[in-house]
């Protein structure tokens, strides 16, 4: 049989198992919708194989010039969206602190008034005719990405009597393998609604939640143009293969 794993880079062992302690509780009565949508039974844990260690790749040819510019992408540069102009930027790395280059990062968000362009969102705040609310990009060879957008507004949502979402941007990241797939949310430094939000509170480990809060990054702001917020994303890493070939019975 041919060795499927020969000639590959060092971090090509199985995926490092997920530490579920740092992730949200699937069942959380504070977030009512999770109550009927969370499994009761334990997950079946297995070492990863090819199904989890491989994944789709995306070429630059599929991307348009405005894809990572939410201020302009809805109407292809004709007029800018309303709101506080910001750059969201950072690096995608894995648990071994290695850059994840050429990986797809997608974001979606409400407009400056806290309204989504979605038929199910009937919030009082109006749609912005020049704002769609999604963007996408590929990380560069160092795992770096950036988006130009507007700061989304906080918005109320039906959960308990008076729940509001803090300002946030939804983030979807691919990594290089299907087992790294992650969706998360970026919050903004200093937003008092973070501590009142039942969705943020599904993450029980405070340090883990804090890592979803982007700091204001004045050094990367552009004077008279936009503020910057830095949001680094860590995906699952893979074990190194040096000791993979165990002696029989070890």
């Amino acid at each position: 049989m041919t060795d499927l794993y020969a000639g590959m880079r060092a971090d090509k062992g199985p995926l490092i198992p997920r530490n579920r302690e740092i992730h949200p509780d699937p069942y959380d009565p504070g977030y009512k919708t999770s109550v009927a949508r969370s499994p009761n039974l334990p997950l079946l844990a297995m070492e990863s194989g090819q199904s989890e260690e491989t994944g789709p790749t995306f070429g630059h040819s599929k991307f348009g010039q405005y894809d990572n510019n939410l201020i302009l992408n809805w109407n292809r540069g004709a007029a800018p969206a309303v709101g506080e102009r910001i750059m969201m930027h950072g690096r995608v790395v894995d648990e071994n602190n290695r850059a994840v280059p050429n990986t797809l990062v997608e974001i979606w968000q409400a407009n400056a008034g806290g309204r989504y362009r979605h038929k199910k969102d009937g919030y009082l705040a109006p749609l912005d005719p020049n704002f769609g609310g999604c963007g996408r990009t590929l990380t560069d060879e160092n795992g770096y990405y950036q988006f130009l957008t507007i700061r989304p507004g906080a918005y109320p949502w039906p959960n308990r009597g008076n729940d509001w979402r803090p300002m946030h941007i939804h983030v979807s990241v691919f990594g290089h393998s299907f087992g790294q797939r992650l969706i998360t949310q970026m919050y903004f430094e200093g937003d008092p609604l973070i501590n009142l939000c039942p969705i943020a509170a599904t993450v029980k480990d405070r340090a883990s939640l804090d890592r979803l809060v982007a700091p204001l990054d004045m050094a990367h702001s552009r004077p008279l143009d936009f503020l910057a917020y830095k949001f680094d994303i860590v995906l699952r890493g893979r074990r190194q293969t040096m000791f993979e070939n165990r002696i029989e019975g070890m």
């Binding site: 530490n19 939804h170 969706i183 480990d205």
Partner: peptide, 12 residues
């Protein structure tokens, strides 16, 4: 490093 925490994909 520690993996970034997941958050719900939400209704949108």
């Amino acid at each position: 490093l520690i993996e970034s925490a997941s958050q719900t994909a939400g209704p949108y």
